[in-house]
């Protein structure tokens, strides 16, 4: 169509320009992060006479703790943007950690759990296998959801149970230790943090500036409208869940590398931490809304809280109780935000 013929009507064009984007919604969450950190700092001085923030070792532990959660959360964020959910990531961490570790065992260790006669493999093999296993599980999640139409909650709940089962069955519950230096390098120093940041930057760009990202938001905003606009919903959902699985696999590899061992119970509860981080970061469970920058800040808030509780020597039981409150609180905030938006219309 030749649109020029409409020019004559454009004399009183009401749209002066493209306009400026509004302030990033992450700003308010960032202020919350700073506020919480300062609160711990204040309470720290008052209660135990120590600084919370001016302690490099503590900050390093904190950020290492949440890097793995952060990587999962990036994948979960894009799933939630499509108005889906992924409950399987914690179990996939356990499964991929076991698979990867079993191929990273050194031959000096005689009692090798899975493959007693295995030769030393280069670190690439366990890493790739771990990632591939996560990817495959994600493809299964996505295919189930896209092709059978069952709710994402159910499909990934199935994977949540089965993947944990695979992790336990694989070594009949035995831990896998004595991993090669090449493999454990990925868990050493600040390597997991660097990987987390690289993943976050890649997915920030992917969601903001690529067709993949635009289609992800479109599907979450209105699946039927996205379909009529020519988006292949099934294929796209499979991709989104596959990526979430891949990132859970990466998290599994890093968990095993950092612990220098793998156990079937690794990653228990990580799926909820990841969802919590995404929701605190402004991702809406209703779909269509969410940004990686928010998720990164959400992850840090989670880290600061956990680290702060330990710092104040709050009992681990209380920590769990408070974590539950945070999850519900974050969702209440999400609902409140949605309602406020609706009222405005």
């Amino acid at each position: 169509m030749n649109t020029d013929m409409l020019d004559k009507q454009a004399v009183t064009a009401p749209v002066a320009g493209i306009g400026k984007r509004r302030l990033p919604p992450e700003l308010s969450i960032f202020i919350v992060l700073i506020g919480i950190a300062l609160l711990f700092e204040l309470v720290g001085w008052l209660a135990i006479g120590q600084s919370f923030l001016l302690n490099t070792a503590r900050l390093k532990i904190m950020i290492l703790q949440v890097s793995v959660i952060g990587i999962i959360s990036v994948g979960v964020t894009q799933v939630i943007i499509t108005s889906g959910i992924d409950l399987s990531s914690g179990s996939l961490v356990g499964m991929t950690a076991m698979l990867a570790a079993s191929l990273a065992q050194t031959s000096q260790f005689v009692d090798r759990a899975v493959y007693p006669s295995l030769v030393d493999l280069p670190f690439v093999v366990p890493v790739v296998v771990g990632l591939a296993a996560g990817l495959l599980a994600g493809v299964v999640n996505g295919t189930l959801i896209a092709k059978t139409g069952i709710p994402p909650f159910i499909a990934t709940l199935g994977m949540f149970v089965s993947a944990r089962g695979i992790a336990k069955w694989y070594t009949k519950g035995q831990p896998v230790s004595f991993l090669s230096d090449g493999f454990t390098f990925f868990g050493s120093g600040l390597v997991p943090v660097v990987i987390f940041l690289v993943v976050a930057v890649i997915f920030h760009i992917l969601l903001r500036y690529t067709r993949y990202g635009k289609f992800t938001y479109a599907i979450g905003s209105n699946m039927q409208a996205a379909r009529v606009s020519g988006i292949n919903i099934q294929a796209h959902l499979i991709k989104v869940y596959a990526v979430a699985g891949l990132l859970a696999g990466l998290a599994g590899v890093l968990t095993a590398a950092r612990a220098q061992t793998a156990q079937a119970g690794m990653g228990v509860g990580y799926e909820f931490d990841a969802i919590t981080a995404a929701v605190i970061g402004g991702t809406s469970l209703a779909g269509g809304v969410g940004r990686i920058t928010g998720t990164v800040i959400g992850t840090l808030i989670l880290g600061v809280m956990l680290s702060g509780f330990t710092f104040l020597r709050i009992d681990a039981y209380y920590q769990e109780i408070i974590k539950g409150v945070i999850i519900v609180g974050a969702v209440i905030t999400d609902v409140y935000r949605q309602n406020k938006k609706k009222k405005k219309v």
Partner: peptide, 12 residues
């Protein structure tokens, strides 16, 4: 948006 005379503060 100009040609269709869409009334919106801006494209965002």
């Amino acid at each position: 948006a100009g040609k269709l005379r869409i009334k919106t503060p801006n494209l965002y």
